[in-house]
């Protein structure tokens, strides 16, 4: 029963993430309308399934009369793009640091630990504020800021798992076989910690997407008129008492995506950890 529930959760997460990724990729072909096209005559139109809704706008329009459904679809692009790019960037930094520290130990490990501690003492939102104040906000700035800051969990997990693997006999056998250090790191250590890193990657991806939304909400994220879900929530907050769907729609989308990513990560950890180990 519990097993089937887990499989169901993994399948659900998989469907959500793949579905939203497909929607993001195919955005230009599946949006019914131009997400940037303003029509002040048709502002704040309710969704088609509510009273007063029209078939032209499935999820209604926003305060500038832009088609809300099209903006939501393009927003998926921004969220997925930020999620993936931030995870790739922070994953590379964190895994490299963690594996090197855990594998070599001693003084190198002490340096890695110091860098991790330094990173942990930096408040993320404050850094983002400062960066935006200096260079202005753009998609690149958001990706770089988050990518260069969100690596600490990768580093911690990569370091501890590497330390566990480092002392196993197959690593000793690889040393005795005359393998080089890079070979041992890449072929013997990394494949045996990667399932832990995949879980971290999903957590970080969800976190990055939420942080982008938070930054956009504060006006520090992607600049308008790009349709980020966080920005949509920020713009909707003035109207939520009169037309609650404008804040509900991007909010629910964000919730579903983050839930999907987390379900996928949890499920993958169980599967990857269990199938190949004895």
């Amino acid at each position: 029963m519990a097993f089937q529930l887990r499989r169901l959760a993994l399948a659900l997460g998989f469907v959500i993430v793949i579905g939203i990724a497909l929607v993001a990729l195919l955005a230009p072909w599946i949006t019914p309308q131009d997400p940037f096209l303003q029509n002040l005559d048709a502002r704040m139109a309710p969704p088609s399934f509510m009273d007063g809704g029209t078939a032209a706008h499935f999820l209604g329009t926003d305060q500038l009369g832009r088609d809300y459904f099209s903006r939501l679809i393009y927003g998926a692009r921004i969220s997925m793009l930020i999620g993936v790019l931030v995870v790739v960037c922070s994953g590379l930094i964190g895994t490299t640091l963690g594996v090197v520290g855990g594998f070599f130990g001693g003084r190198i490990d002490a340096v890695v630990m110091f860098i991790i501690t330094c990173r942990l003492s930096i408040p993320l939102i404050l850094v983002a504020l400062t960066v935006v104040a200096f260079v202005g906000s753009s998609l690149t700035v958001v990706v770089l800021t988050l990518g260069l800051l969100l690596w600490e969990r990768f580093a911690v997990v990569a370091r501890t798992t590497t330390m566990q693997v480092r002392n196993l006999d197959y690593i000793a056998a690889a040393w005795a076989a005359g393998c080089s250090r890079p070979y041992i790191l890449l072929r013997e250590v990394l494949p045996n910690i990667v399932h832990h890193l995949i879980v971290v990657a999903t957590l970080e991806m969800a976190l990055a997407i939420l942080l982008e939304a938070a930054l956009s909400f504060l006006g520090l994220g992607v600049p308008p008129p790009l349709p980020s879900w966080g920005l949509m929530i920020a713009e909707a907050k003035d109207y939520m008492y009169f037309s609650p769907w404008v804040i509900l729609v991007p909010g629910i989308a964000l919730f579903v995506l983050v839930l999907g990513i987390n379900l996928l990560g949890d499920g993958l950890r169980d599967r990857l950890g269990a199938t190949r180990d004895a």
Partner: peptide, 9 residues
Amino acid sequence: PFSSLNPRR
């Protein structure tokens, strides 16, 4: 032999 062989190769 359970720890001397890399489980992923």
